[in-house]
Design a protein around this nucleic acid. Structure first.
Lengths: 229, 229, 229, 229
DNA sequence: GATGAATGAGTTTTCATTCAT
DNA sequence: TATGAATGAAAACTCATTCAT
């Protein structure tokens, strides 16, 4: 399921490889009914929210008996976690590849390319997993397990990969001197804002994707102020 | 309750004045028990989410009988809307003042000041109404009434106030030429990102507020790229 | 509820007085529906056993909605314990009166009278609370809370009241020298056997109560062996 | 399975021989999985009671699939009866041997020996089949089939064997004149009390078995009253 | 206006039993 | 013969809402 979804497919760290392999193994092991249950649950959870979703509606939409759900998932919450937890991993996974380390050897002007690649990749991801992301975002504040996992993933990524990278770009003069957290926040804000707008708020809004990516990265890098001619 | 919360307190448009007056009138009319109910509901809704909150817990925390809640609010959803709808109004209210129109006469370099004033004002607002905003954000996607109201308010603001303002600044050369929606999105992203970070994600994170505001606006205007010396 | 049930009504120890008062207070506080629920629960539990009893049947027999049961008792188990725990107390209560201590001053031949009084009293009690005793006996092995309470009550009684009494009678020659536990076991066996027989196994079996009591005590004291003439 | 368990192994009445043979034949016919199912069922039934035991837990403990249980036993209740019914038979079996009839020719002083032999034998039996007896005792009141069988066995024994024996001993002066049912009740009470105490209530309680048996029989025969010296 | 007992429809969950493989 | 996924009826329990007091 990860294969082909990321722009950076190979050569990840061992633990993340294991984690992703396990997820893939889980996927393979699923019976047809189980898949239908998952699909129905994703539908209902994303439409009504976890608490307002009823297992009876999920069963109905999946075309299985209600008992069947509980044969595969001990509780309704289990069903949620088995859906939401993998999304969190996949959401952050591309930032954990070994390639990321190699970026340190990039020439100065590749910072822009990197930003574009990431933005393009995650925009695709969000489109492909729109409902799952809705569920993840909505339930993270109420499910301590999810919250912990997301925090954990984010921290690992930031400390291990992103901060060194930012400092590297700053040393080369590609990025302004400022606290790394501020760079991260500005970038994440801009990217999340762009993805949320096109995927969730105004999915019908027509736009040239490549131009949007370019412009968004340009705004991030150079701001919206008028440039003295 | 709006008075004093906004940096731009007086002289609004008529319809928004009426709306705010009505809200204020509602506030005044509240009995002590009703206030306790609202407070308890805000607590419980923000902790567990609307669907997972029980009216019995709200009654308990408010120190009233369960029946009392339904004497004041026909249904649980009514209680939610009576809490969440005003927040949406207050969230957008400051952008509807007449002062905003006057900004068009501002000198070029005041664009920065305006951004700073707005960011400071809304950061304060978010801190003061943290729980209410949590509720609003979580329930908007599931409550069509709320969604419609938020969309309505936002559209009114954008068309009536913000787009002209942006075009004004662009004409003066204070902002780069680009579609207004892109300016708006970039600004909102950056500001929301900053507020979410300091109010919701890392409220303990120590920071110099004025510097943060200045830096955030600076990044918005000039980007994070290194500047050729 | 204790008043009139015991042959030894007054002047108990403080803790048992408190406990019994609390039980009585609980009884008084009960609404009419609550009483109907308890009665129905006693019926159903004693007919089918706790695990096989359904709350819906209890509700039906009590003539209340199923939800009403759970308004008064958090869980089905709570309902069981609120029924069974008091029986355990009442079962042992009479052995805790202060009068019991006074028995030490009795003349030798009163041992028989004491045995007869106890047997008569507990036979009455068993008849009056037949169903409750069924429930208690059946559920004690499966409900750790009940088991603990019964053990606790029994131990207190034996150590504080019965062992000294037995030793007293042994010193006077009214009872043979043998370990106190063996005296207790023999007596309890004989009495329980008699009560179980007349109340539970063969309630229709006609008998002269006074004579039965006399004979049972006589067998306990002098055995069933033929007496050399 | 009966052979060697009773102190009186041979030479039973025809109908009970047939019954026991049939039970034994059933045992022999059992596959290894069936045996594991029975063992697991005994465990779970005795731990939780029949109604609270789940076939899935039994299957799990037996290491078989849930369906396998129902291949061998039509229903869960069938499984219970196939376990409990034989215990009832074995519990009463020894009283049905032909030897019992021969006891009528015993000399007077052998009454004590008989009591001792029976008590020793049934104490062993209870220890060996502790869990089965728990099940039997707990389920008899709720399973009409079991109740009928136990009553039937008991009646047969009493009428056919025990009453004549008691009358025989009474005629010889070995037992006091009193209604036979009272002799039986006194004996059963004392013996059951002793077995319950040592096997179920206080299995850790250390005791000299032969002395206990002797003392218990002595108490049954001569009572606990002090003997005038 | 306030109460809180009562409701009953709805929820999640369990479980004995069936049946295709 | 054995399996175990699937079932659906029933279980325990929840909860928004009503209403007599």
């Amino acid at each position: 399921m990860v294969r082909g979804e990321s722009a950076f497919p190979d050569d990840r760290e061992q633990w993340i490889i294991d984690l992703l392999n396990r997820l893939e193994a889980d996927d393979v092991r699923k019976t047809e009914k189980q898949i239908r249950i998952i699909e129905a649950a994703v539908e209902v959870f994303s439409e009504k929210g976890f608490a307002a979703a009823s297992t009876s509606e999920i069963a109905q939409r999946a075309g299985v008996a209600e008992g069947t759900i509980f044969r595969h998932y001990k509780t309704k919450k289990d069903l949620l976690l088995s859906i939401a937890a993998p999304v969190a991993v996949k959401l952050f996974a591309p930032f954990l590849m070994r390639d990321f380390a190699k970026l340190l050897e990039m020439p100065y002007d590749r910072a822009e390319d990197l930003f574009r690649a990431i933005l393009r990749d995650r925009l695709d991801f969000a489109r492909k997993h729109k409902k799952l992301l809705r569920i993840l975002v909505h339930e993270v504040p109420f499910q301590p397990e999810l919250l912990a996992q997301v925090k954990d993933l984010f921290t690992h990524i930031v400390i291990a990969r992103i901060e060194p990278l930012i400092r590297h770009f700053q040393e080369r003069g590609a990025l302004r001197e400022m606290p790394t957290w501020r760079v991260i926040r500005a970038t994440v804000s801009q990217f999340v804002g762009m993805v949320v707008f096109h995927v969730f708020l105004a999915p019908e809004f027509p736009f040239d994707e490549e131009e949007e990516i370019e412009q968004t990265v340009d705004i991030l890098l150079h701001g919206i102020a008028g440039r003295p001619s």
